[in-house]
Design a binder for these strands. Sequence first.
DNA 1: GGAAGTAACCTACTCCGAGTAAGGTAGGGC
DNA 2: GCCCTACCTTACTCGGAGTAGGTTACTTCC
Lengths: 188, 188
Amino acid sequence: MPRAERERQMLTVAEEIFAERGYRDTSMDEIAERVGVSKPMIYEYFGSKEGLLVACIRAARAELLAATIASVEGVESAEEALRRGLTAFFEFIDSHRRSWKLIQAEATVAGQQAVDEIEAGRQQQTAINVTLFSSFLPDVPVSELEAYAEIVVGACERLATWYVHRDVSAGEAAEHVMRLVWFGLRPD
Amino acid sequence: MPRAERERQMLTVAEEIFAERGYRDTSMDEIAERVGVSKPMIYEYFGSKEGLLVACIRAARAELLAATIASVEGVESAEEALRRGLTAFFEFIDSHRRSWKLIQAEATVAGQQAVDEIEAGRQQQTAINVTLFSSFLPDVPVSELEAYAEIVVGACERLATWYVHRDVSAGEAAEHVMRLVWFGLRPD
DNA sequence: GGAAGTAACCTACTCCGAGTAAGGTAGGGC
DNA sequence: GCCCTACCTTACTCGGAGTAGGTTACTTCC
């Protein structure tokens, strides 16, 4: 079996087991067995247990970002773009709970590399927000926009965790964040 | 040495090493050595490595909550109470970076117990926010207030992480959150 | 066809650190 | 003096991350 395919297979299985039982309680032996391969193969391809987790996180975050970006493409109004981006985020959470757990690493993270990977993902999300905010807040300094962008990223992450336990639609969740961000930020 | 004092000593050392090197890269042997005691003593008092971490998290969160509550005591205006609570939060972060790392567990968390402990701390913080919001938004249903409370908790957590790398004062950070929350939520 | 190289894969380990079994010592109550 | 309890130790087990050193099988070049 060619390497690329094996890697994808390993990622799929790892994502499943990590999300199901958590990083700590997953052994490399188990992943290897479920893939139908021996442990050193995984080490050959991903370097370490943490490396494997990092690859899973990266893949999941990439999917989320792609969904967000696709949702705002071609939209002119800033308000509408913001609303669509937020809705896409919560819809993603809804249909990809497993990926969401991984992106957050469900607080069962491995080490510095994994922390950095998650932080890098947040930075991408923050950057999108900064761009968006600057379109309707041209006079606000970038450092302040960054603060707002961080706030929104944090707000969404937390609300997402709350959200999965409630009977709330993606639209409603998005509207809640919208209310704060749009009413709170738009110039008077 | 009496148990209570030993426990406090162990917590102090553990907090220091966990915050410094992360949960994963800290060994119980090392903590025991630095305390000047043998490993089974720590197991006798805290049950497990995760139990020790949970105790550290709980202590740090209790300190933060106490500071928050003290800051709003006796304040009448909702706006002022909110501002003071937020400022107290960021001031705490400023002067207790080590505790903050632990409260977040710096993404190097141990297992389900630790996750639950962190979540429980957030719930306390959320409850405070719900009470506060209901004072100036009496007509909004509780479930919606909860959503806003979660949003604010998430926003503060994220902004705190951003905050420690920047040259921003606690007051400014609080003002940024204030702008969104107050302008975003107050009834028109 | 055979030599040489390489990519995919394996068995059989090492080693570190969490957690434990079994016991030692010191001081207070009677 | 004796027992009981609380504090503390040495000396282990055991599971899982990571590795050394191979084997197999397919391609490539002569």
